[in-house]
Design a protein around this nucleic acid. Sequence first.
DNA 1: CGAAACGTTGACCGTTTTCAATTACAGTGG
DNA 2: CCACTGTAATTGAAAACGGTCAACGTTTCG
Lengths: 204, 204
Amino acid sequence: MGIQGAGAWVGLVDSERLRRRRLEPGEALFRQGASAVAVYRVDCGRVRLVRHLEDGSSVALHVARNGETFAEAALWAEAYHCDSVAEALSEVTVIPKADLLDALEDNPQAALALARGLAAHVRDLRARLELRNIRSAPKWILAWLRLQASGDPPTARLDRPWTEIAAEIGLTHEAIYRALSTLERTGRIARRSGVITLCRHRDA
Amino acid sequence: MGIQGAGAWVGLVDSERLRRRRLEPGEALFRQGASAVAVYRVDCGRVRLVRHLEDGSSVALHVARNGETFAEAALWAEAYHCDSVAEALSEVTVIPKADLLDALEDNPQAALALARGLAAHVRDLRARLELRNIRSAPKWILAWLRLQASGDPPTARLDRPWTEIAAEIGLTHEAIYRALSTLERTGRIARRSGVITLCRHRDA
DNA sequence: CGAAACGTTGACCGTTTTCAATTACAGTGG
DNA sequence: CCACTGTAATTGAAAACGGTCAACGTTTCG
């Protein structure tokens, strides 16, 4: 799940210039229209980005999770174009825009590193987009597990509850559990308290 | 959708090194797995980036339009990781990878411009990913329209058929049309030949 | 003027969502 | 050590929804 090299550019800024901010559930980090002063990284928790419209409705743009950076576009914008609100108790690293820009403007290597990291991020996001095309819950789980699993036989260790994974992809946890039990019943996977083993099978 | 100032960095490369290529509708510019030799800019027409899955289905990763650059990741990749196919008669500028890298290494501003375009891509992809979490067709359309719309009342102009939009997100066109007529019948939207107006409503 | 697309709607079927209830388990305070 | 509480994990049943197949009107364009 994690983007390997993503966010490496956070290190470009002198660590003394970085701040840390703790957010209570529901607390806003910044609001749409507020002056764009920093880029952020989630150290723990979840931060939801929401855009509001003239008519009062709103749309979720993203939910940034552990290790993810967000509001990168603030580097080139005057103001934030969405709200960011903590979904749970969270901590974020605040990377001041001016410092980051300074570091980048003098340093072609650094700017290229940033671009490279973003390009990798684009690749990663596109890969996730592919997963989303799978509508069948069992197939989705199988595909997801293949990405997570390693070793022989392929095994995946869960570091978080299925409930959370379900929410992340827009399936209900019931659907997930049903699919899991079906897969287990038909012998495609084996489960032992948070550890899942994929069983070899005659199909893609 | 469009990335405004993107592509300023194309000018960095000596124009003698740039090539121009004309693509017939359906013609491929490059294929998944082919050696990554260049980055491109659409001068006119539309170029679709497609990835094929094992089960035969495919996902539209992006549709690059007038003025947009694409395949930036080729700068750091050995091979292209998706197909690119012209949707209509198109012309693209071919920016040789090696020349571009040379130019960027001497020019932080240009590298930053590149990063800017990529950041916009990231934003776009994150929003699409978030939209994918919505399974209900009516809700999906509403959210999508809210992102597309502007003005008060929020209005969106379609520049392509619903059929295409449906395919891009993995819904059938039937589902889309049904949802559209439901939304119109219940007074949430109004349609007039390619122009859609969102009606205010008492919910998020 | 036809052939392609696009747009639309109905019926049927399989899967997911919803609503609801139950079990399992970890952490907390008495 | 044990109720007590909250989250995670399960499962059932009925309702809602999208996929698929099919038919048909409409627009577009060579």
